[in-house]
């Protein structure tokens, strides 16, 4: 039986966390609310109070400066989708949003809500992990920062505490050179949840040397994984020395981190094989975007 709940609106982050504190653990945040409404209808969550934060327009932004890209938690997937021509990293994130749910859901769903839902198969999360993003979490005591990697604590579990609110995602941009990223996934029809996915972000310095490699593996563990050993295997190489074979090796190292399960969408074996291919293709794509020839 679906729970009965009352509805409240918060106009600011402070108001939202005050309401959370007031109503206790069964009060739940609705950002766009698409996941929440679904989970409530499926009786996976039983809120007694819905705190709607859609009016918090101060968290609805996408900003770029020299240090990086800031995406407010309340930016909708649709606005991220429409930010493609503002930065090449936003182009890549925009392409990801086009894979997410339907256009009708993207208008309502938010970046913050998507992250807080913490689905292991989420599309943006592996890219954010690969891009070494951090998140800002608001509470009555002030804001704190957490790396994207540490943000996810399990299936539908995050670092956000009972009286806290996700405020912003920050994607750092390199001081020297440029970062290029890519995301690949296995899906069935044009609207689907990823069966498995992989993302790579490659920074190349002005000296033509790969200075930083980030990887994100999705739907192969309860949380998004990275693969520091695989990243290290590529870092320090000159862009011009990168070969397909090398990228295949890096992807193979990274894929070893995966601990996939079998479910209705795919078997563990298929996920294990495909995550490697997704990572390899993401790496190839990132290298190509840098102008590297493979």
């Amino acid at each position: 039986m679906k729970s009965a709940f009352t509805y409240e609106r918060a106009g600011s982050p402070a108001e939202a966390v005050a309401l959370l504190a007031k109503h206790g653990p069964d009060a739940m945040i609705w950002a766009g609310g698409t996941d929440m409404t679904l989970q409530w209808q499926q009786e996976k969550v039983s809120p007694t109070v819905c705190i709607d934060i859609r009016d918090i327009s101060e968290l609805d932004y996408i900003e770029i400066d020299n240090s990086g890209i800031r995406i407010g938690a309340m930016a909708s997937l649709a606005s991220l989708e429409r930010s493609a021509d503002r930065h090449h990293i936003l182009t890549m994130l925009s392409d990801i949003t086009k894979l997410m749910a339907t256009p009708q859901t993207r208008t309502l769903a938010t970046v913050g809500g998507n992250l807080c839902n913490a689905s292991p198969a989420a599309d943006l999360s592996p890219a954010f992990v690969a891009l070494d993003a951090t998140v800002k979490i608001f509470s009555a005591l002030g804001a704190r920062k957490v790396s994207m990697l540490d943000f996810f604590k399990g299936v539908n579990k995050t670092e956000v505490g009972p009286a806290e609110l996700l405020e912003e995602v920050f994607i750092p941009l390199p001081d020297d050179g440029d970062v290029q990223a890519s995301y690949k996934r296995i899906d069935r029809t044009v609207v689907d949840i990823a069966l498995v996915n992989g993302s790579a972000a490659v920074t190349v310095g002005s000296d033509g040397v790969i200075s930083k490699v980030g990887l994100g593996l999705g739907a192969v563990a309860p949380i998004i994984l990275n693969a520091p050993d695989a990243s290290a295997a590529l870092e320090g190489l000159k862009l011009s020395d990168v070969t397909r074979e090398k990228l295949a090796k890096v992807a193979a190292i990274a894929a070893k981190h995966a601990k996939p399960i079998t479910d209705v969408r795919a078997s563990a074996g298929y996920r294990q094989d495909m995550v490697e291919i997704m990572l390899r293709r993401s790496l190839e794509d990132s290298i190509s975007k840098h102008g590297g020839t493979l």
């Binding site: 069935r188 029809t189 044009v190 609207v191 689907d192 949840i193 209705v264 969408r265």
Partner: peptide, 16 residues
């Protein structure tokens, strides 16, 4: 039935 929903029972869509 384990996929009694349209998320995991895949129907072709327009662009498919």
């Amino acid at each position: 039935l384990k996929n009694g929903n349209l998320l995991d029972y895949k129907l072709l869509r327009c662009a498919d």
